[in-house]
Structures are given as C-alpha cells and as structure tokens.
Design a protein around this nucleic acid. Structure first.
Lengths: 236, 236
DNA sequence: TTTTTAAATGTTTTTTTTACACTAATCAAA
DNA sequence: TTTGATTAGTGTAAAAAAAACATTTAAAAA
C-alpha cells in the first residue's frame, strides 16, 4: 500500500568537504564521472538509498571519497529548485564536513579525480553546487564564531599561532595575539604539550591538543571566539 | 531520460506553527484526515509537488491551514528514518513558523480540525512529529537568544511587559525588568507609541511597535537579548 | 482619600573586552 | 662567538557591557 496520486523523486546528498592546510581553507571537489556535466567539477554526491537515512548516506559518500569515518558533518537546508538537475527532479541535501586535511587518504579517491581547491579559487561547479558552497561558507563563519568547531580541521597537535591563523583566515581579519591566546587558554579547551613545532619559527611554538571531554560537552554551547565587533556575520 | 537504478521517494513538508497568547506558547495541531493514524493529532503536512520548491510547499501548506501569507518560516533538518512512515518511504522536512496568534483565521481550518495546544501539554503525535516539535523548540530557544525573531509572535502593538513575559516563558526564567527594558530600548528595534494597554494593569503599559526597517536589516545579526548566563542552551 | 496593582525608572558594582609593546628563544650569518 | 633576524610568549590599564539592586508613579477601585 502506497500514498496514491503523489509523485516520488530522487533525494541526493552532496558533501561539502572543507580542510585547512595551515595557511588556506580548501575544499575537496571531484570531476563528475557521468552525464550530465561529465568531467565538470562538482561536489561529491550520491542518491539516498531505500534503507538509509540522510546522515548515513552522507557518511557513506564521504567515506567513499576520503576513507574517513567519524567526521564532523552538519546537514544544511535542502536545495529544491524543480529544475536544478536537468535530468530529473532531485532534492539535494548538502552536508558540510570539516576534516583534518592530513588524514585524507589520496589513494582512495583515484576513481573520482578529487582535488583540493583553495576556497579563494573555486572553479565553476555543476548545477547549484556553487550556491551550496557559498552558503556553506557563510554558515561555517556563523557557527565558528559561536562554537569551537574549527578544531575539526586541525591535527591532534597544533600551535596557538596555527589556531589564530585559522580564525583569521576564515574571516579575513587580524586578531590581537594576546587577546586571542588569553581567550583560548581560558576556555579550558586546550591542553599544553611539552614539545614544540619548529617548522615555522626558530623559537618554536608549543603544541597544544584538544581537551576532548570538555570539547564534546561544549560543542553545542555558545563560546564566542571571534567577537561581534571583529566580524560582520552576513547571515545565519 | 532519467537516472537509472535509483529509487525515488516521497518528500513531505511538515509545519510546526508556534504562537504566543500573551501568557503561553502554543502550537497548532490538526487531526489527521486520512490513514494511517487517521484522527490522531499531527503536524499539518503535505507532499512536495513536482513543480514547487520545499519553501513553496511549506508556504502552500501553511496558508491552507491558517489563511496566512508572508509568515516567518525556517527550514529544519530533514527527518529521514526509512520506516518513519509505515506506508512508504517519506523524507520529511519540517518548517518552523512563528505567527501572531490573532491573525490566524479560525474559519479556514474547519476541514482539518485544527487546535492550539499549550507547548506544555502537547498530545502524543503521529510518527516522529513529537521529535520534530521537541527539536523545533530547542532550536527556537537557541535562535531567539541570538536574533530578535520572537517579535513574529506578537501583534503590531505590544508592551514591554508582554515582551518580557514572552522571553521569560520561552526559557522558563525570570528576568530583571530594568535590565531587560534597557537592553530592548537600546536595541533600536522598538518605537514607542502614544497609547497604553490597560487590559492588564490600572496604570497601563505603553504600546511599542517594531522598527521594521531596522528589524529586517538585523534579523541575521547577532543580538543577544537573553544572555548566556540566563539560560543553558541545550543544543543548536 | 486611601488602597491596590502593575509600570517605569537610575546607579553602583562586577565582569568582560579591548588596546597596546616589550622580552625570550633559537637559528643563521657574519 | 657574537650579532641579527624571526616568530613566540606574556601583562596591565582603560573602556564597555552586564548584573545587581529598590523606589516612585499612574490610575482605577474601594
């Protein structure tokens, strides 16, 4: 038994995968392997199967491309223009993932011709994927100002200057080093390690790691790291 | 031409309609008119048609029930458990609407047996609608702490005590009257009228109205009205 | 005119945020 | 081995924002 006189449609999940290489924000794109728009740059996507939730579909698709499990994923609003896909009606649900770029395994992606692009040089994307990415970045800026989600982009050990560069890069601002480190250190999120990263200075910067417990408990709490006066949040 | 070997599914929109009667938060529910779960309490919903976006579907369905146009609507994350609807696979996209309860026209809804329930006394709902409502309330608390969206619940003219009651009710807290009014008045959101509402006191409380321009420009800005220390935001 | 009820209002204290500049560690070059 | 170059690390004072707190005012009813 089915609901009668209703039209069914495809539901797709598209993965917006952000990374940070220490200097720049990157997005992982693939060359679409099938018509239409074959070979054009695109988000990694796939159709939701009959026995899986949207979250499960997104995890499956992300894993297929990156080999990663247990990744930060956040569902965005659905894209539903009737003609957004010229082949047939497809409702697309984008997911934003933040990954440690170093954990991404290159070998696994060969099928998809995946490539990291700086978010300042994103190529033209198929369908409405460009809009998705733009909205995703807007929402990332919004959320990251209120919640410590950017840590998902970093390796296990990171330095305070790296952290600051990451925040400055997202909003294209300069922050005061003393105020920034004070805020971070007083947040209880960080644990100081004993060794230093000497790759970017002679003096070397101490490594820190995430206080995982505290982090998990406080992801949903509001913890302003960049303040209202530092940035202008375009939208939610 | 279609994508081959893919399964298509129904996509539904469900409307979570909140109102505020001056004292309590209310939700508008209907008695479902068809099987399964006929006559059970439910959110007003409907299937997305082939030629409409999700937003359009949500507007259509909300208008069908309430007669209202131009209502605040906010798309939530999709609900996608494969078996959430026992009849067949349906992906549900809930929309939260905030309406001025007085504008809702009773005559239009007779078909649906709609009824306002206090959010403290929500009946058992079909499928996963109960979860949707719970999440919607959580998100309403989150958003309302950061953006002046609760004004959507009020009539054109309202008083400061009404406004305070509305915020206190959402978080189940008491706020300091002096600090609250100072914050609101300094926000530039309000315009003082010359007349008073004498329905709830002898002295009467001055009416205020929304500075629409300023409001529209600042909806997406962060404007904390209740502060972190007043509330504990469960989640985002 | 007195009583009752809810509305309106200001100041002080505390906390948070901002602005601002020098010293420390290490490597490389002279 | 000394000097210079480079980035890391750190504290304090001023300003702004938030919190705590109690009395007066308007108007109707008694």
């Amino acid at each position: 038994m089915k609901y009668s006189n209703q039209t069914r449609m495809l539901v797709a999940v598209d993965c917006i995968i952000f990374g940070f290489d220490g200097t720049d924000y990157k997005i992982l794109l693939i060359q679409r392997g099938f018509a239409p728009e074959k070979e054009k740059w695109s988000l990694m996507g796939g159709f939701v199967q009959m026995d899986e939730t949207l979250d499960e579909a997104a995890k499956r698709i992300l894993n297929q491309l990156t080999g990663l499990h247990d990744v930060y994923m956040d569902q965005m609003s659905a894209f539903s223009q009737p003609l957004r896909d010229p082949i047939e009606r497809v409702i697309a649900v984008p997911y934003v993932s933040l990954i440690d770029i170093e954990k991404y395994s290159k070998q696994i992606n060969n099928d998809f011709h995946a490539k990291w692009f700086s978010i300042r040089e994103i190529p033209k994307l198929i369908f409405d994927h460009g809009d998705m990415v733009e909205l995703a970045l807007q929402q990332l800026r919004y959320k990251a100002a209120l919640h410590p989600i950017l840590f998902e982009l970093l390796p296990e050990k990171f330095t305070l200057p790296q952290l600051q560069t990451m925040y400055e890069g997202l909003y294209d601002i300069k922050l005061d080093k003393r105020n920034f480190t004070r805020k971070l250190l007083s947040s209880n999120l960080l644990h100081k390690e004993n060794d230093k990263d000497k790759s970017s200075s002679k003096k070397g910067a101490y490594y820190y790691s995430l206080n995982e417990d505290f982090y998990t408990r406080n992801l949903s709490n509001i913890l302003p790291i960049v303040s209202k006066s530092d940035i202008s949040l375009a939208a939610e």
